[in-house]
Design a protein around this nucleic acid. Structure first.
Lengths: 181, 181
DNA sequence: GCATACATGTAAATGGTTACATGATTGG
DNA sequence: CCAATCATGTAACCATTTACATGTATGC
């Protein structure tokens, strides 16, 4: 049995996003920046310098392959393509439980077509619990400060928290429903 | 005319938060960590090491003063208090237009009692425009991908964006109303 | 006897942003 | 002629996190 080269180290969010975009097909750094801007960029957008730093790293790690493309009327470019190892790293990232933040959860949903719906449902479920706990916490705080005129400003931000915890739970419900079909 | 010592450099968000908490009164690093956890921590919470790094910097910059407190049954501690310069730096930060993120906007509201309501209303107003633009953008995208089965996952995250842009606008309305009284 | 709260820090790594640098081609 | 697009990077800086380090006092 041969051992498959493994990325032991965890992907950073930015790396995962780059892999996710690369999963659509062969792309140059410039392409990736444009694509990101128009889609996933609303959730996560790397700086140019960071992107160009990451791409060679992915190649070194065996997650992507580079190919030089000659062009006449444009500057030559390097295009990158996912390797099977890279694709595996991406799905592993997608499967990895307990997203650390909403952004991460959303990214996993965004790139979720690469993975069975059950994986996403699990991610959503885990987050639901956290969100419910948070809502509970906010409600406790609310009862403490609701009518205290001194905490007017704090109360405003708390109301933001309450509204958003509830909205997130509603979205989670809808997402679970949608992905269960 | 004497020149007042000025912090020319912008405060980082974490520094602003520390100043904000210090505005409540004299506190030790340990106190600040506890306080943050229970209140502003839901929006912004610095690591321990960062807090302990920032406090001496504030003293160096003339924004805070340090005082050693001897204790019998507890380890001795250092408590920090805002100087007038520090308070000024904080209100300048609060007044500074165009918050770069929601987090920053929320923090400014949270510490907003230190500043006339008009300042906050201006901040809210600026953000409203941005949020309306964003909602517009999302709606444009929605029309493009709504019925494309290939963008099911992207559509889910877009719906998150739409729901939240709308929720933010509702919150902005409520906040403006509340602060206009 | 052990966990927790009190109290403060250092060292190292990392992940990311901003600014700088260059240059060809296309379209108005 | 000028602006925008295509194309790729380096250098410097920064804010922040994680891990390490130490020690007392209180309450169960």
């Amino acid at each position: 049995m041969r051992t498959i080269p493994q990325q032991t180290k965890q992907l950073t969010t930015t790396e995962a996003v780059v892999l996710g975009l690369l999963a659509e097909g062969e792309r140059s750094g410039y392409d990736l920046l444009k694509r990101a801007e128009a889609s996933v960029g609303h959730m996560w957008s790397p700086a140019k310098s960071q992107l160009y730093a990451i791409l060679p790293r992915l190649v070194d790690g065996g997650l992507a392959r580079r190919r030089a493309v000659r062009q006449r009327s444009r500057p030559d470019k390097q295009v990158y393509r996912l390797t099977p190892v890279g694709r595996r790293a991406l799905t592993t990232w997608l499967e990895q439980p307990s997203p650390r933040s909403w952004d991460e959860l959303l990214l996993k949903i965004f790139f979720g077509r690469l993975v069975p719906a059950a994986v996403l449902l699990q991610q959503l479920d885990e987050y639901r619990e956290r969100e419910e706990a948070r809502l509970e916490e906010y409600r406790t705080i609310e009862q403490k400060i609701a009518d205290d005129p001194k905490s007017r400003h704090g109360y405003l931000t708390l109301r933001y928290g309450l509204a958003f915890a509830r909205a997130r739970l509603r979205w989670l419900d809808a997402a679970v429903k949608e992905l269960s079909e």
